[in-house]
Design a protein around this nucleic acid. Structure first.
Lengths: 179, 179
DNA sequence: TTCAAATTAGAACAACCACTCTAATTTGAT
DNA sequence: ATCAAATTAGAGTGGTTGTTCTAATTTGAA
């Protein structure tokens, strides 16, 4: 992959993989389907990728990284939630991939499962810091609850396009521990 | 399926399907794998089921029905949440199937998608009634938020066996709308 | 312009898939 | 005990899967 055409073909393959995984799921994304959508033949695919798994893993990594914007940077809870909501609003395909992998795909492949767990821990940590900075009690527990609940909202958004994800995320932010 | 042995074989097939879908996902659940685990051969499978799809759909229906216990009966929010948590604690396999289908499988098959949407609407209605009876403001919106958040907790429970699902569900119940 | 390296096409491969067919065995009401 | 119906085993079908191979073409630095 050193020539211009090769780089372009690789991009088309990844684009096709992104769309197919998003629309039909991980297992239904076949080499044939990828090649058809990318306008190439199987031989060309294997010149740029060593396996179907590799192309899919690249897309999955894209999705996971998208949920972790500006790592290391401090942010308040409102900003973290807003970034997550915006990710799903602006990157429909990767959003679907993210939720799909978090459930179905993560269970099988052990390396992927471990990567997802680490990703999730980092996410909870970030929410914990933000909540602690806002002097919320039980910051870590609340952070875990918020992250899980947000994922639930995202899941619902995937199933029902009419679901008001931004509005419900905002409502979630207004909730406070009661008596 | 009128003889004793046939009924038993059918039960073994469904048990195997339940386990395999739960452990390896919808697509990885092959006829061969089902038959091996059930201790039969393919010919026997097709004597009792007309297709692989049929067996899987039976299992999916089981999972969905499990989340709707005692339909029509009125219950308070605490009882609804407790029932949902108990379902995942006591029926590990069907719990995994439920979450898997809610994400990956529901997108493809249109009939299944419609069934899931109806199931979810009934669930939100039930939570709405319970919240309204407790004189919670914006009962319907809060119900939608709670159901989605609970699904998020369940999803997390599937990925991380150490996750304290009952505890976080209880914490979710204590949250009240703030200023 | 040269030319090795990169890219492509397309046929070919073995493994696997869901499913069918037939013959033999088992079941249980009579 | 009889016997039609139910159940089973097991080989076989056609189609699809991911992947490999080879020969031909295209690329772009020299």
């Amino acid at each position: 992959m050193r020539y211009r055409v090769g780089i372009e073909t690789r991009a088309r393959i990844l684009g096709a993989t992104r769309e197919l995984v998003s629309e039909f799921g991980l297992e239904a994304t076949t080499i044939k389907a990828i090649c058809q959508r990318a306008g190439i033949l199987a031989g060309s695919f294997y010149n740029l990728f060593s396996s179907k798994e590799e192309a899919i893993l690249v897309v999955i990594r894209e999705a996971i990284q998208m949920v972790e914007p500006n790592p290391g940077e401090t942010a308040d809870v409102e900003a973290l939630v807003a970034a997550y909501v915006r990710f799903f609003e602006e990157h429909e395909h990767l959003g679907r991939v993210y939720v799909m992998v978090a459930v179905g795909g993560g269970v099988r492949d052990e390396a992927l499962r471990a990567r997802l767990m680490r990703h999730h821990e980092r996410r909870v940590e970030r929410f914990t810091d933000a909540l602690a900075a806002a002097e919320v009690q039980n910051a870590e527990q609340m952070a875990e609850l918020m992250v899980a609940a947000l994922n639930g909202l995202a899941l619902h958004r995937i199933l029902d396009p009419k679901f008001d994800f931004p509005g419900q995320a905002e409502r979630l932010l207004t909730l406070r521990p009661g008596p």
